[in-house]
Protein backbone atom coordinates (compact mmCIF):
# COMPACT_ATOMS: atom_id res chain seq x y z
CA UNK A 1 0.00 0.00 0.00
CA UNK A 2 2.80 2.38 0.95
CA UNK A 3 4.67 1.32 -2.14
CA UNK A 4 1.77 2.12 -4.45
CA UNK A 5 1.39 5.57 -2.82
CA UNK A 6 5.05 6.33 -3.31
CA UNK A 7 4.89 5.28 -6.94
CA UNK A 8 1.85 7.43 -7.56
CA UNK A 9 3.63 10.44 -6.11
CA UNK A 10 6.74 9.76 -8.21
CA UNK A 11 4.55 9.62 -11.30
CA UNK A 12 2.84 12.87 -10.30
CA UNK A 13 6.20 14.59 -9.79
CA UNK A 14 7.52 13.34 -13.11
CA UNK A 15 4.46 14.88 -14.74
CA UNK A 16 5.04 18.09 -12.84
CA UNK A 17 8.66 18.25 -14.04
CA UNK A 18 7.67 17.57 -17.62
CA UNK A 19 4.99 20.26 -17.65
CA UNK A 20 6.88 22.86 -15.60
CA UNK A 21 9.96 22.55 -17.78
CA UNK A 22 8.18 22.00 -21.12
CA UNK A 23 10.13 18.80 -21.69
CA UNK A 24 9.29 17.08 -24.94
CA UNK A 25 9.64 13.40 -25.75
CA UNK A 26 9.57 12.16 -22.17
CA UNK A 27 6.68 10.15 -20.77
CA UNK A 28 5.96 10.31 -17.05
CA UNK A 29 4.90 6.63 -16.95
CA UNK A 30 8.16 5.32 -18.37
CA UNK A 31 10.77 7.28 -16.41
CA UNK A 32 13.39 5.73 -14.18
CA UNK A 33 12.73 7.21 -10.72
CA UNK A 34 16.42 6.87 -9.86
CA UNK A 35 17.75 8.74 -12.90
CA UNK A 36 19.78 11.78 -11.78
CA UNK A 37 18.02 15.13 -12.23
CA UNK A 38 21.20 17.08 -12.92
CA UNK A 39 24.25 16.33 -15.01
CA UNK A 40 24.57 14.75 -18.42
CA UNK A 41 21.53 14.36 -20.64
CA UNK A 42 22.21 10.78 -21.72
CA UNK A 43 22.01 9.28 -18.24
CA UNK A 44 19.40 11.50 -16.63
CA UNK A 45 17.21 14.55 -16.94
CA UNK A 46 20.08 16.94 -17.61
CA UNK A 47 18.48 19.81 -15.71
CA UNK A 48 20.36 23.03 -15.03
CA UNK A 49 20.16 25.31 -12.03
CA UNK A 50 17.44 27.53 -13.51
CA UNK A 51 15.38 24.35 -13.96
CA UNK A 52 16.01 23.58 -10.29
CA UNK A 53 14.47 26.90 -9.35
CA UNK A 54 11.41 26.28 -11.50
CA UNK A 55 10.99 22.81 -10.05
CA UNK A 56 11.25 24.26 -6.56
CA UNK A 57 8.61 26.89 -7.38
CA UNK A 58 6.27 24.31 -8.95
CA UNK A 59 6.64 21.93 -5.99
CA UNK A 60 5.96 24.75 -3.58
CA UNK A 61 2.88 25.82 -5.48
CA UNK A 62 1.42 22.34 -5.79
CA UNK A 63 2.33 20.77 -2.44
CA UNK A 64 3.20 23.72 -0.22
CA UNK A 65 6.61 22.15 0.34
CA UNK A 66 9.60 24.45 0.38
CA UNK A 67 12.99 23.57 -1.05
CA UNK A 68 15.27 26.00 0.69
CA UNK A 69 18.81 26.78 -0.41
CA UNK A 70 21.74 25.47 1.59
CA UNK A 71 19.87 22.72 3.35
CA UNK A 72 21.05 19.16 3.22
CA UNK A 73 17.44 18.03 2.68
CA UNK A 74 17.24 20.10 -0.52
CA UNK A 75 20.48 18.69 -1.83
CA UNK A 76 19.17 15.18 -1.23
CA UNK A 77 15.71 15.94 -2.69
CA UNK A 78 17.28 17.14 -5.94
CA UNK A 79 19.03 13.81 -6.55
CA UNK A 80 16.26 12.01 -8.44
CA UNK A 81 12.49 11.84 -8.85
CA UNK A 82 12.44 9.23 -6.08
CA UNK A 83 14.22 11.43 -3.54
CA UNK A 84 12.10 14.41 -4.56
CA UNK A 85 8.97 12.32 -3.93
CA UNK A 86 10.32 11.25 -0.53
CA UNK A 87 10.95 14.87 0.37
CA UNK A 88 7.45 15.94 -0.65
CA UNK A 89 5.86 12.98 1.17
CA UNK A 90 7.72 13.85 4.39
CA UNK A 91 7.04 17.58 4.38
CA UNK A 92 3.59 18.10 2.98
CA UNK A 93 0.70 18.60 5.32
Amino acid sequence: MMMAGAQALEHELAELLISALNIEGRDASSIDPDAPLFGAHDVGWGLDSIDALEVALAVQQKYGVELRADEEATRRAFTSVRTLAEHVATHRH
Binding site: F38, L47, D48, S49, I50, D51, A52, L53, A56, L67, R68, A69, D70, T74, R75, F78
Partner: peptide, 11 residues
Protein backbone atom coordinates in the same frame (compact mmCIF):
# COMPACT_ATOMS: atom_id res chain seq x y z
CA UNK B 1 27.68 24.32 -5.18
CA UNK B 2 25.69 23.66 -8.34
CA UNK B 3 21.91 23.92 -8.53
CA UNK B 4 21.59 25.51 -5.10
CA UNK B 5 23.00 28.81 -6.34
CA UNK B 6 19.82 29.80 -8.11
CA UNK B 7 17.77 28.96 -5.02
CA UNK B 8 20.04 31.23 -2.97
CA UNK B 9 19.60 34.01 -5.51
CA UNK B 10 15.86 33.53 -5.54
CA UNK B 11 15.64 33.77 -1.76
Amino acid sequence: GGPQLVLRLHE
